[in-house]
Structure formats: structure tokens, C-alpha cells
Design a protein around this nucleic acid. Structure first.
Length: 348
DNA sequence: AAGACGGGGGT
DNA sequence: ACCCCAGTCTT
């Protein structure tokens, strides 16, 4: 196939893709989400931050909580870090929460509470990368920027036969250029929403609905039996085992907890007195073992064991810890595994 | 360019 | 077990 024919084929496929996608969106797309179709940039930004690497089903309740509790960006900007972290508890990727607060405050202070409406300024916001900037720019302001998220990568990779991954910057750019090329510049919001809905509801990661897919006639992956292989997966990283021994130290006024400040998992969340090591800490021979559990993170396997002891029965430096009444524990944000423990033992 | 960063749900 | 989710930031 010569260069010219190849270019023409691409063009025809582009037309086919956009036409069929648009038709599918009008005819069959029943997907409903609280932020769909709105143009409040603050709400859209909120939804996008919450949904980064997070399923819609998981994020929706958090979104509803945030827009109800903080209806204006100034409300969020004025809230205490501790309270917002508690609101975010269980969502994961807690740096998102920190960046969200920083951005809310920047917009309140620097922009007088008015959300910036140009792509470059939006992209400059903490926690806002290329995907989120394009989403806000298109959904809130109708600007012609194509989103490229996991759904878009999958759809483009399969339909157009893009046999490269997307971890390399150059390859990612290839997807971005393709998406931008396909984008309906007159209706960027509708196009972006449609392609993501299409990826989520029809061209899913596993067992996509090819038999009812309006794009199947010209789909590279279907034709070449590459559905399961595309998009190319990134090589999976090794899971590191970590062993956390938590000691619940009971004093008259409550138990001791401490905020995780280190550059590590769960930064900003609270935890009990911790010793991280493989074997049971020797000094704790008089402590009572309560429970143990394993929590899987994307990159670590956390083995937690919980012990309890009375403060009088052990010598430890607790100067950097907070002594918190048990009934106030519910006000502190903990990692999911600690919340689970606290629930099992009726602390919260 | 490669890692770090959560938690959950589907198969 | 493995996949991967409306990704971004740091090193």
C-alpha cells in the first residue's frame, strides 16, 4: 500500500469512527452519571480528581458527598485539612486530596474563586495533568481538547490497530495526536464523553461486546484477533511485602495515634504505634495479639498484625503521638485496613 | 523512562 | 490470580 492510499484509508476510517461513535452515543448510550452534562467547572474538576484511577461506581458516592458538603470552591478552600482527609478516606491515592486542597485554595485566593478557563492555566493546577485539563477544558468550557484516558487508549488501540503501549512519552503522544485528530471540534464535550462511555460500556477491557459493536466492521483488533492483546499491557511491577505490627496502647484517656508524615503510602492518614519488621517485636511479649490481616495495594502487600496493651505496662516514647478518646476516633482518617480493624473490634 | 501511589470489583 | 480503573507526580 503506497503512502497516499494509506493516508486515504486512515481518513476513511476516521470518518467512519466518528460517525458511528456519534450515532451510537445518540442512539444507544444510556450511561448516566451525576456530573454528566453539567458545565460547572468546579464540579467537573472535583469529579475528575475523584475519578483518576478510580471506577465510576467507587467515586460517585464521594462526588455526591463533596458537592453537597462543599457546594462552592471557597467552601472546600476554607475547610480543615483533617476534615477533608476524613471525607476522602477510603478513596486511595491520598496525594490527590492534598493537591485538591492546594488547588481549591489557589483558585479561591489567586483567582477570586473563579475557575480558570484556559487550557494552560488549568493544566498548571496541582493534581491536574493532560487528561484532567482536557476534560475540564472541554466539559466546562467547550474547548477543543481531546481526552486520553484508559478508555480512549483501549478504543483507539483496538480499532486503529495501534500496536504500541502508552508508558513511553512518544507512544502516549501518538495516542493523543490520534484522539485530537478524531475530536469533533464543534462538539468536543459530547465527543469526549461519548468515547469514554463507549470504552466503559461496550469496548471494555475484558469481553467487549463486539457482536453488537457499531464499529466492528472496520475494527483492526477484531479482524486480526487482537482484542485480548490490545492495548499492549505494561509489564507488571513486583509486589513488595511489608510487615506492620500495630500496638494499640490504651491509656486512661484513650489510645495513641499518629499521623503518617513520611513520603510513603498513606501520607496524611493516621495510624497506631507502628513497628515495621518481619518478626514479632520482642518488647511486646506482654501485649495481647488481637488480629491480623493482609491488604493488597497496587505495588505492595501489607501484612498487618494488631496487638493491644495498657500504657502502664510498656515503656515507649509516645511524645510524637496524639492521645485520642476512643469516641473521637471517627474524626480521624485512617487507611482502609485500619478502619476495617477498628470496625471489627467495635472502636468505630 | 521508571516508580510510587489505594482501594475495589470483575473474571 | 490477574486485570485495570475518567492519571499525576517524583526521581
Amino acid at each position: 500500500m503506497n503512502k497516499r492510499t494509506e493516508g486515504n484509508t486512515q481518513y476513511v476510517n476516521n470518518q467512519f469512527f466518528t460517525k458511528e461513535l456519534t450515532a451510537w452515543n445518540k442512539r444507544s448510550n444510556k450511561r448516566k452519571m451525576p456530573w454528566k452534562g453539567i458545565d460547572n467547572p468546579y464540579f467537573i474538576w472535583l469529579s475528575e480528581i475523584i475519578l483518576q484511577q478510580t471506577r465510576v461506581e467507587q467515586g460517585t458516592a464521594y462526588y455526591n458527598k463533596f458537592i453537597t458538603k462543599y457546594p462552592f470552591i471557597e467552601d472546600l478552600a476554607a475547610a480543615d485539612d483533617e476534615v477533608v482527609f476524613k471525607d476522602w478516606e477510603g478513596l486511595g491515592y491520598y496525594n490527590r486530596c492534598r493537591n485538591m486542597l492546594a488547588t481549591a485554595r489557589r483558585i479561591a485566593d489567586e483567582f477570586g474563586g473563579v475557575f480558570p478557563n484556559d487550557y494552560d492555566t488549568i493544566l498548571s493546577l496541582k493534581g491536574v495533568g493532560p487528561y484532567t485539563a482536557a476534560a475540564i477544558a472541554s466539559f466546562a468550557f467547550g474547548l477543543p481538547y481531546a481526552v486520553v484516558d484508559g478508555n480512549v487508549i483501549r478504543v483507539l488501540s483496538r480499532f486503529f490497530g495501534i500496536e504500541v503501549g502508552f508508558e513511553k512519552a512518544k507512544d502516549k503522544k501518538h495516542y493523543e495526536a490520534k484522539a485530537q485528530d478524531l475530536l469533533d471540534k464543534k462538539k468536543p464535550a459530547a465527543f469526549n464523553q461519548a468515547i469514554m462511555d463507549f470504552g466503559a460500556k461496550l469496548c471494555m477491557p475484558q469481553n467487549p461486546l463486539c457482536n453488537t459493536c457499531p464499529l466492528s466492521k472496520k475494527c483492526y483488533a477484531l479482524k486480526n484477533d487482537r482484542i485480548a492483546e490490545l492495548p499492549l499491557k505494561k509489564k507488571k511491577l513486583a509486589i513488595k511485602n511489608r510487615y506492620f505490627h500495630y500496638l494499640i496502647i490504651h491509656a486512661k484517656k484513650g489510645i495513641y495515634i499518629k499521623k503518617r508524615e513520611e513520603k510513603d503510602i498513606w501520607q496524611g492518614l493516621y495510624e497506631f504505634y507502628l513497628q515495621e519488621q518481619k518478626a514479632t517485636p520482642k518488647l511486646w511479649s506482654s501485649a495481647k495479639k488481637l488480629d491480623s490481616e493482609i491488604q493488597l495495594l497496587s505495588h505492595q502487600k501489607i501484612h498487618s498484625t494488631f496487638y493491644e496493651i495498657r500504657a502502664n505496662d510498656i515503656e515507649l516514647d509516645m511524645s510524637s503521638y496524639h492521645l485520642v478518646n476512643v469516641k473521637d476516633l471517627k474524626n480521624y482518617a485512617f487507611p482502609r485496613s485500619l478502619v476495617s480493624f477498628l470496625e471489627r473490634f467495635d472502636y468505630i
